[in-house]
Computed example of a mutant assay.
Amino acid sequence: MRNETQGGLSRRQLLAWTGGTALALVLGGRASAATSASLDDFMALSARLLDTPASSLSPGFGEGYFNALISRGFGDALAGLRDGSPASDLESSILGNWYTGVAEIASGEEVVTYPEAMMWNALDFTKPMGWCGGETGYWADAPEGEA
């Protein structure tokens, strides 16, 4: 007696086919996950792009920027950057994130940080709006070391 399903496959063939498909999906998922970038990769890449030590970058802010890029499907592109592939638009986006403190997400923009954004280091003559610079009249005196 032959055990066949309606499509003409035996149970053994069906089990072999589904088992092989499941194995391919599991192994295929691991292979693609292995090529994706990690947060550590992103922090090292950011340090290289910003020409600054990785230890000077906030891991919390980096995680916000990294998650925003991953949510927009840039995992493989980040892995490519990590491995040396050029991607100037993505590099510009990463630099923009760190300098503005804003990350692009699927639904728009998300503020990761405002007062600690790197633009305030570049704009050392000013401060974040709404951020107190000192006591009333502090702006009348020259900064320390300048006269």
Rank of each mutant, 00 (worst) to 15 (best):
L25S: 06
E144L: 03
M118E: 02
A34Y: 08
L15P: 00
Q6V: 15
L25I: 10
A68T: 08
G75L: 02
S10C: 08
K127D: 10
L50M: 12
L90Y: 04
M119S: 10
F42M: 09
G145N: 01
G133S: 06
T21G: 03
L23S: 12
A31Y: 10
G84A: 06
F42A: 11
A22Q: 10
M119R: 15
N67V: 14
S38G: 13
E135H: 10
L95N: 05
M119I: 15
I105P: 00
R11T: 03
A54D: 11
F125Y: 13
L69V: 11
G7H: 03
L25C: 04
R30A: 15
A147C: 02
D76E: 13
L81T: 05
E144I: 10
T113K: 10
P86N: 12
N67W: 05
D41V: 02
A79I: 01
G133R: 01
A87V: 07
T100R: 12
G108P: 03
C132W: 08
D41N: 15
I70P: 00
G130F: 11
N121R: 13
E91C: 07
R48M: 07
G75F: 00
A147P: 01
L25T: 11
W139P: 02
G130R: 09
M43N: 09
D83M: 08
E144D: 11
A24P: 01
G73F: 00
L95V: 15
S85D: 13
G20A: 08
F61P: 01
T100K: 13
A34H: 13
A22E: 13
E91Y: 02
R12I: 06
F66P: 04
G64P: 04
R2K: 09
Q6R: 10
M118C: 00
S88T: 15
L49I: 12
S32E: 09
S56C: 07
S85E: 15
T136W: 06
A47R: 11
A87R: 05
G137E: 12
V112N: 03
M129L: 11
D76H: 14
G29V: 08
S38H: 07
G80R: 09
G19V: 00
K127W: 11
D124W: 14
S93E: 15
Q6W: 03
A47K: 12
A31F: 12
A47I: 06
G73K: 03
P115A: 12
S71N: 11
N121V: 01
T100H: 09
S10T: 14
D89W: 05
V112E: 00
G130D: 09
T113F: 11
A33G: 13
F74G: 10
G19R: 09
R11G: 09
N121Q: 10
S71E: 08
A31M: 13
N3M: 07
T113S: 06
Q6A: 15
D40N: 13
G134S: 10
G80N: 06
L15R: 05
L14H: 03
I70Q: 06
G101T: 04
D141M: 08
Y114L: 04
Q13K: 04
S92C: 10
M129E: 06
G108S: 09
E4G: 08
Y65M: 08
R2V: 01
L15G: 04
G29H: 03
L50P: 07
S85A: 09
S38T: 15
F125P: 01
E63T: 14
G145E: 02
W17I: 13
S107Q: 11
L95G: 06
R2H: 05
S55K: 05
A87D: 14
M118A: 07
